[in-house]
Design a protein around this nucleic acid. Structure first.
Lengths: 214, 214
DNA sequence: CAGGAATTCAAACGACGGTTTGAAAAATGG
DNA sequence: CCATTTTTCAAACCGTCGTTTGAATTCCTG
């Protein structure tokens, strides 16, 4: 009975290679659209490695999804304290700008958002449970933001306002591919995204400002 | 050279049966998630019928997508005139309420919206062209609505405002599955949707109201 | 440096995907 | 009613999918 408690190093690098390649491909083409063979080709590992390390495609996807969730919450909650030291207007504008970040590039955060987008149409069981467990603090952050504008609102109104706030950003993120094309025709460089964030921020602030009633 | 110009009746019913079944299945599981065998089983036709009538799965999907687009624009533009006779506040509230309709049931309009949702993550070429051709009047409707609140705004602001308006509704429609579950926990019956539409409508109106500047 | 466990590898398996085929069955038109 | 076209049908084809297999190789440890 050998108690192999030490981490084995060389196998970890293939694990990482697989996860990295899978994250990119899942973000690009979704779960069904990504084949095991495409993943192992990109990761340059053997095909059986996925079943060996993750017990199948499902297990790998589960792992990628977990990592994406961790990335998202860290990315957002890391700046949560800064928001508290700002005015509510500044804090909301900052939040909106950060939500619009994926419009600019294909960084890690954008990939994570894209993986979640695949899930919104028909959520996996894995995704459902992850949302139920881990999305609460993130939604809470948005709820806290709107709470500073609606101090007298009841719980339901606050929750709806939080979802509403997220929707105003996500519609642009989700339809990023369509925005530059007709009939919309938006340019998506950095100043344009800054302007967009500022505009949306102004509308949100004005929308929540005078509405004290539930 | 027989000029068979007359429509053949009995074959049309199988065409319709296929389209009807395909629309439901595509809405439920998307293009990749729906198999030819599932469609013909639901439509109770032979498997080769799809290739015969539509020249393959792509052709069938194209047809379903066209029908969905027609349904959407008709559904919205049919009430476009009514909006003009209302005050801008009433018109916007009506528009929001109509956008939130899919929250309630699984009617035809909801299915069409669901098919579009599948496309937003990675749009098909067919979908892209349909959007470019046929979405303009629908987006124009939204743009006209916000134009009544922002009479001095430039073109870009109006377009962004239209997309923004649609986003505030679609975030609820898109995540309909998640809304009743934790950590959100919304009930989605008719009075709740009415309240939701009214609340969103109020926020949008307040948001656009004082912001006259671009 | 053995010896055993952990990991990699090429190949194949079985299931399911969309499409094709060629003949049988209706439908059409003179 | 017959000749021709149109439509249906069961079966098979061919490719891709995720997974399994069993041997070869590498890694760790005593």
């Amino acid at each position: 009975m050998a108690m192999a408690r030490r981490m084995t190093r060389p196998s970890e690098v293939t694990r990482e290679r697989i996860i990295k390649a899978a994250e990119r491909l899942f973000a690009e083409s979704g779960y069904d659209g990504t084949s095991i063979r495409a993943i192992v080709a990109k990761a340059k590992v053997n095909q059986a490695a996925i079943n060996y390390h993750f017990e199948g495609k499902d297990g790998l996807y589960r792992e990628v999804l977990r990592a994406a969730f961790r990335g998202l919450t860290e990315h957002q909650l890391a700046h949560a304290e800064e928001l508290n030291s700002m005015s509510r207007e500044e804090a909301l504008a900052q939040f909106v700008r950060r939500q619009l970040q994926p419009l600019l590039g294909r960084d890690e955060y954008s990939r994570h958002m894209r993986i979640f987008n695949w899930e919104t149409v028909q959520p996996t069981a894995v995704f459902r449970s992850l949302v139920a467990e881990e999305a609460a603090p993130f939604l809470g952050l948005a709820a806290d933001l709107v709470h500073r504008f609606l101090p007298d609102a009841d719980q339901r109104t606050l929750t709806v306002a939080a979802v509403w706030l997220l929707g105003q950003c996500s519609v642009f993120v989700r339809n990023r591919e369509q925005l530059p094309q007709p009939p919309i025709g938006l340019v998506l460089d950095e100043p344009a995204v800054d302007w967009l964030a500022a505009t949306i921020g102004r509308w949100v602030i004005a929308g929540l400002q005078p509405a004290g009633r539930s």
